[in-house]
């Protein structure tokens, strides 16, 4: 029977996890076995609050992701295609990238209030900078021969964008989306933990910590990973449809 490699790998990891628990390599006060987590998961999934937590976090993540792409892609393309503009702002972007985005959360919290806007804008800011850097770097490395050829045929900037630049940039957009999505999940979860909203997976981590329900905590961590993984899978599925000509390579 042929076993999918990913499934086999996951099985090995779960087996190691169970073995660690059996050998009591960690204090059971702060460690839960896969079986305990599985048992707890049935209780958790039968309650209504978990779905509200998931949906609130996913909505924040998706909103921040869309904003980051709307900012990161066009600005990244501009910097990638026009080296003089990149020379002006490249250094500043590298500087911004070095600042952990979550440190801007207090600023947004004061300016926008204790609501989703401050969380989303914090994530969007950090992810936009990353998006700009990824897209601009990819675009700078593109072979410009195709563009030069159509320019020689007197294609206008609009026609160049519509027929060439947009399509050539799609791989960069996908790469940026994958990089940004992980970053956005991290920032949203951390901001949910810092000043907890009523609903959200980060807020759930904080409240479960207080009750000391370790299997619940483990399960919530796995859920957070699953959210990121599902978003990545959706991006990969979009990639296969959008940039079909590269899938054949």
């Amino acid at each position: 029977m042929k076993v999918h490699s990913g499934t086999l790998g996951l099985t090995i990891i779960v087996a190691i996890w169970q073995l660690v628990d059996l050998l009591q390599l960690f204090n059971p006060i702060y460690f839960a076995s896969p079986l305990e987590v599985l048992a707890e998961s049935f209780d958790i999934l039968s309650t209504s609050t978990i779905y509200s937590d998931i949906s609130h976090t996913v909505l924040r993540v998706l909103t921040a992701l869309v904003i980051s792409l709307l900012v990161g892609v066009p600005v990244g393309l501009l910097l990638g295609y026009y080296s003089k503009i990149h020379a002006l702002f490249g250094g500043f972007l590298d500087f911004m990238r070095s600042i952990p985005p979550v440190v801007f959360f207090p600023l947004f919290y004061i300016a926008l209030g204790p609501n989703d806007s401050s969380r989303i804008m914090t994530a969007a800011l950090g992810a936009s900078v990353l998006g700009i850097l990824v897209v601009s770097k990819y675009t700078m490395q593109l072979d410009k021969t195709r563009l030069h050829y159509f320019r020689s045929l007197n294609f206008s900037q609009f026609m160049l964008f519509k027929n060439i630049i947009w399509y050539e940039s799609l791989p960069a957009v996908i790469v940026a989306a994958k990089a940004i999505s992980s970053w956005v999940v991290v920032i949203i979860i951390v901001t949910e933990m810092l000043v907890g909203p009523k609903h959200g997976l980060g807020a759930r981590v904080q409240s479960v910590q207080i009750t000391n329900n370790i299997p619940d905590l483990f399960f919530t961590i796995i859920l957070i990973g699953a959210v990121g993984l599902i978003i990545n899978i959706l991006i990969t599925m979009t990639e296969k449809r959008l940039i079909f000509w590269l899938q054949s390579d």
Binding site: T145, R146, N163
Partner: peptide, 14 residues
Amino acid sequence: YVNQKPGEILLPWF
């Protein structure tokens, strides 16, 4: 104009 490497200036998405 016909390029030395035609794949370079054909548009693979069309």
